[in-house]
Computed example of a mutant assay.
Amino acid sequence: MMLNLQDIPRVKTISKEDFLKHYFKPQKPVVIEKFIEDWPAYTKWNLEYMKTVGGDLTVPLYDDRPVDYKDGFNEPHAKMKLADYVDLLKREPTRYRIFLWNAIKEIPQLQNDFKFPDFGLRLMKGIPMLFFGGRDSYTFMHYDLDLANIFHFHFEGKKQIILFDQKQNKYLYKVPHSLITREDIDFANPDFEKWPMLKHANGYKTELNHGEVLYMPEGYWHYMRYITPGFSMSLRAIARNPKNFGQALYNFFIMRHFDNAMRRLKGQEWIDWKNRQAVIRTHKHA
């Protein structure tokens, strides 16, 4: 049995008006295939180029180990020179990913390789974030702290994406006081005996190729698996829906600090309680 996933619609290119009308207003995802062919990044950006321009930089690395109470919010699991990391990606599968890295700040010349597209939304220009991964590395199913509108530009190789909107929360084994589902769910091949409510969730899927852009609406859950080594850049625009914007403020100023305080206070007991609650609360909807 498989998850109920429909293909994310694809367009070759799109006008601002059509994007706003057909995707932003109804909050539906879309892949735009040919939007950045005039960017220098389209031809230049690959792993070897990143190694050339930023090889000496030390980068934070994350893997897919479960959350540990000793780890702070989004603390890296290791560090490595970018050149060594790119060599590792090309040599063998690795669980290590670069996550939310503001490379443009550390390698200013990258700024010349792309432009901020006009989708009719005000993009946050200070935080273009880069994400790298090796073959078969993946992110847990999660949504972002700020519930932003996200434009995800993929470079080199191929990446599998699964999305759910916030209406599916009751089926996804969401962990309370956090932005993730149970980490032991394999969304690429879920065990429906163990996680029966996933059968009721309706989501989206696609595979992103070099130069394609995925629009993820506000607060969408996303799971991403690198089919081959590669990297992506995310540009974001603040949540426009007042409920989502309010939730983003709550996550930044209350939820994140409350969760960190409880980790310090209760340790692993807090993590274990949250994981049990994810199951109890989800199965209430059975």
Score class of each variant (00 low, 15 high):
D64V: 03
R135G: 11
G126T: 03
R122H: 13
V11C: 08
Y226Q: 14
I32W: 03
L47K: 05
Y138K: 07
L147D: 00
Y220D: 02
Y49I: 05
N169Y: 05
V279S: 07
R95I: 01
Y143V: 06
Q247C: 03
D38H: 04
Y42P: 01
N46C: 12
R264P: 00
E156D: 14
H200K: 15
Q109T: 07
K159Y: 05
F153L: 15
A278S: 08
I127A: 06
I104K: 13
H152A: 05
W195L: 03
K12T: 09
P217L: 07
M129C: 07
P108C: 09
P176H: 05
N189M: 08
K16M: 05
G55P: 02
V67L: 11
D38M: 03
R135Q: 15
L20K: 09
K105F: 05
G134N: 11
D184Q: 05
I127G: 03
A237K: 09
K243N: 09
Q277F: 00
A201Q: 04
M124Y: 13
N189E: 07
M224A: 15
F119L: 13
F231Y: 10
I107P: 00
Y96V: 01
H210T: 11
F151T: 01
D38C: 00
I150H: 00
K274V: 00
P93D: 11
F231H: 10
I150T: 13
L265T: 12
R10L: 11
F155A: 12
Q6T: 12
T206P: 01
N275R: 14
F153Y: 15
Q111W: 04
F99G: 01
H154Q: 15
P66G: 03
D186F: 02
R135S: 14
L3M: 06
Q6H: 06
E193S: 06
L123A: 08
Y204H: 10
A148C: 09
L3H: 00
I180M: 03
K28V: 13
V59A: 11
G54M: 12
W273C: 02
D84K: 14
M141I: 03
Q160E: 15
F258D: 03
L5W: 06
W221Q: 07
A103Y: 04
Q6F: 07
W195Y: 15
E33L: 12
E75F: 10
A248E: 02
V30F: 08
A78S: 15
A41S: 13
P217C: 10
K90A: 10
F35L: 15
P176C: 08
P196L: 07
F73W: 14
A188Y: 01
Q268E: 15
R240W: 12
D165E: 12
K115E: 14
N112K: 15
I254K: 05
D56T: 13
W270H: 11
S137Q: 03
F140E: 02
N112H: 13
N149T: 04
L88Y: 09
L145D: 05
Q109W: 01
G157P: 02
A237G: 13
M80R: 11
T13A: 12
Y49P: 03
L172Y: 05
F24E: 14
Q247I: 10
L3E: 00
L123P: 00
